[in-house]
Design a protein around this nucleic acid. Structure first.
Lengths: 334, 334
DNA sequence: ATTAGCACTCTCGGGATTAGACTGCTAATG
DNA sequence: CATTAGCAGTCTAATCCCGAGAGTGCTAAT
C-alpha cells in the first residue's frame, strides 16, 4: 500500500510529467513542492514506487515517468470529479443550439468540440438503437423502373435504398403502396415484417417490404462498427508517438474494433496505454463515454491522446459534451 | 526549348526519382538508359536543365531532383493517357456493384478504392446539384409537437429537418399536408416555394414550406465546402513531408478550401507542389477529377500524395474511378 | 558537340570525448 | 528507524572529427 507521502509523490510525478513532458527528478519534487523532506528521502520513495511498478525510468540514471499503473492511480485518486469551466459549458451548449437539429450534425459537432476543448483527437460512433422498429416509409419514383425507399425507424433514424422495379410504376401507385405499408407495418421489427411480406398479395408491397427487412437489419450492423475519428492533427506530432510512426498509429486506431470489453457500460471510462491490448496503441490513452437515451439508443464518444494526457481536462470535456448530447437526443427520442 | 535529348533526360530523371526516391546522378542515367552518350554529356544537359529550373539539387555535389516545373513537364509529356490494368478495372466495378446503391456509399467506396489503388490519401466532395428542385416531401410525426421533414431533391438527394409544431398534430394531419405539398411544389426551386408559402392558407402547410426553403438552399452550401479525406495512413510517413510535421500537413489540407481556380473544369487536373499556393502543401501533389452527370450534378474526387508521386498510376486510378462513379450516378439521375 | 580525366565539394556514418543530469549507496544524524 | 548529506557511478545527448564515397564542374583533348 502506498504511504500518504508516496501517494503525494506519485501524484506530483504524474502532474509534473503531464505538464512538462520531461522525466521528473527528485530535486524538482523536493524544490517545487513543500513536502518537508529532502531529495534523498524522495529518492527512497521513488525507488519504492519503481519496485511496485508505479513508475518507470527511461534509463538507469534518469528521472521518473508514470507507468500505466501510475497514471491509473492518478486518475482514480483525482480529487473532485472535474468540471468544465462555466464559460466553456456555455460555449458548448450555445454551439449545439446553433446547428441543425439533427443527430448526425450533433454528433459531428460533439466530436469537433472535443477536439477543440482538449486538443486531442476525438472518436465517435453514431447512436445505435437497441432494437429497430418500423415507423414510416416513403416511396419516391426516380423513373419508371426505379424507386427510392425512405425508411424512418422509431428513433427518427433514416435509411434509404434504391429499388429497381419489375414494371413501369407511377408515383401514384407508389404512394398508394406506401400508405398500405405504413398502416400494416407500423411499430414492427425486421422479423415481423419479413413474415408479413410473405403473406402480401400486392406484388409491389411484397417487393418493398422484402427490401425493407435488410435495411432494418443493416441499421444495427453498420452503426455499431462505424467508429469515426476527428482531428488527427491534434495528436499527430505528440512526441511520444514518434516511436511508432504516425502511419502505424492512425492505421491501428482506424482498424480497431473498439473492443466491447473496454467500453463503458454506462458513464465514462478511461483506458490507459497498455490496458487497450493492441500494441500500437500502448502510447495512447482513451477517455470514452457512452451517450444516448437510456434503454433505447446509445452511442460512444471520447478522445484519444498520449498516455501523458491531461486527464482532468479530457474527462471533464468528454463528460460535459456527452451529457449535452444525451440531453439533446432526449428531446427527439422521448 | 528543350532539345529532344534534354527532354529524354528530364523524363528519365523524373521516372527514376519517383521510383527510387534518391537524387539521380548522371552515371545512373548513362548506364541504365541507352542514350548513346557519355555521363559527361549528360552532365551538360542536366546543368542546362538546372539553369532553366527543371531540376534542383539537394546540395552542390548531389544528383538531380525534378522541380515542380520538371514534374509538370513530365506529366504533360506523358505518353499515352494511362489506363488502369483490366483486372483492376474489374475489381473496381465489381466492388461498386456490391455495395448499396446509394450516393454516399459509392462516394465513400470510391475514396477508399483510390486509397487502395494508389496508396495515397484520397479526397472527395459529395456531389452538388447545379440547382435544387423539389421532388418529394415526407412528414413523420415524432411526437405531438415535433415532426420530421424528409425532403427529396430532384437528384435523389435526401435532406431531413426537425420541425417543432405550434399545436398537437397527428400523423394523419401530416400525411394530408404532405400530399398537398407534394402536389403544389413538385419541380419547384427554393425561390418559387418561398413565394408560394406566403399564399398558403393552411398554417401547417405554410410552416412546413417555410422550413423547406432553407433546407433546399443549404443543400448547396454544405456540400460545396465539405471536403473529406480518407486514408491518411497512406501518406503520413512519406519521408518527404518530414520537413513539415504530420500535424501541419493534415491541418493544412483539412483547412484547405480546394480553391475553385485549381479545380478541373471538366475531366482531370494535376496540381504539383507549389502550384497549390498554400506553403504547407508544397511537398504535396494532387490529382483531382470532377465526376457527376453533366449539367445536373457534380463533385470532385482525387488523391493527395508527395510531389514524388507515381503520377501515371494516380492519374489512371482517379480517372477510372471517377468515370465509374459518374456512370453509376447516371443510372440514378437520368 | 562530345568526352576522359581529375580536382573539388558535400554528405553521411562512426567513433571519441565531454558536460551535465540523476540516481543509488553509504555512513552519519536526530 | 526514518531521514539526510555527500559522493561515486551511470547514462544521455551534444559536439567534434575523420574518412569514405558519391557526384559534380571544369579543362583540355578529340
Amino acid at each position: 500500500m502506498l504511504s500518504s507521502r508516496q501517494g503525494q509523490v506519485l501524484r506530483i510525478i504524474s502532474r509534473e510529467f503531464i505538464t512538462a513532458g520531461v522525466p521528473v527528478s527528485s530535486d524538482v519534487i523536493a524544490h517545487n513542492y513543500d513536502l518537508g523532506v529532502s531529495p534523498a528521502t524522495i529518492r527512497n520513495d521513488v525507488a519504492w514506487l519503481e519496485r511496485e511498478g508505479y513508475i518507470l525510468r527511461p534509463h538507469t540514471s534518469a528521472g521518473a515517468v508514470p507507468s500505466h499503473k501510475g497514471y491509473r492511480h492518478f486518475v482514480e485518486t483525482m480529487e473532485v470529479p472535474p468540471e468544465l469551466p462555466p464559460w466553456e459549458q456555455h460555449m458548448v451548449s450555445h454551439l449545439f443550439h446553433q446547428v441543425e437539429r439533427d443527430t448526425e450534425e450533433w454528433v459531428g459537432l460533439a466530436a469537433s468540440l472535443l477536439g477543440r476543448l482538449t486538443r486531442y483527437a476525438s472518436l465517435v460512433t453514431l447512436p445505435r438503437a437497441e432494437e429497430n422498429l418500423f415507423r414510416h416509409i416513403g416511396l419516391v419514383s426516380l423513373h419508371q423502373f426505379l424507386a427510392m425507399i425512405i425508411l424512418v425507424l422509431r428513433e427518427a433514424r433514416l435509411r434509404q435504398l434504391l429499388l429497381p422495379l419489375e414494371q413501369p410504376t407511377s408515383q401514384e401507385v407508389l404512394d398508394a403502396a406506401a400508405i398500405r405499408l405504413n398502416r400494416a407495418c407500423y411499430g414492427m421489427d425486421a422479423v415481423a415484417i419479413g413474415n408479413l411480406a410473405e403473406e402480401m398479395t400486392h406484388p409491389l408491397d411484397q417487393a418493398v417490404s422484402r427490401a425493407v427487412v435488410p435495411m432494418m437489419r443493416r441499421a444495427d450492423r453498420q452503426e455499431t462498427a462505424e467508429l469515426q475519428f476527428y482531428g488527427w492533427g491534434y495528436i499527430l506530432d505528440e512526441p511520444e508517438l514518434l516511436g511508432n510512426t504516425a502511419r502505424e498509429t492512425v492505421e491501428a486506431l482506424e482498424g480497431w474494433g473498439l473492443p466491447p470489453s473496454l467500453l463503458p457500460t454506462d458513464g465514462l471510462r478511461v483506458i490507459i496505454g497498455e490496458e487497450s491490448q493492441e500494441v500500437a496503441l500502448h502510447p495512447l490513452s482513451l477517455v470514452i463515454a457512452s451517450y444516448g437515451v437510456a434503454p433505447r439508443v446509445k452511442g460512444f464518444i471520447g478522445v484519444v491522446g498520449p498516455t501523458r494526457m491531461r486527464y482532468g481536462r479530457a474527462i471533464s470535456a468528454v463528460k460535459y459534451v456527452s451529457e449535452q448530447l444525451s440531453y439533446l437526443l432526449g428531446e427527439i427520442y422521448s
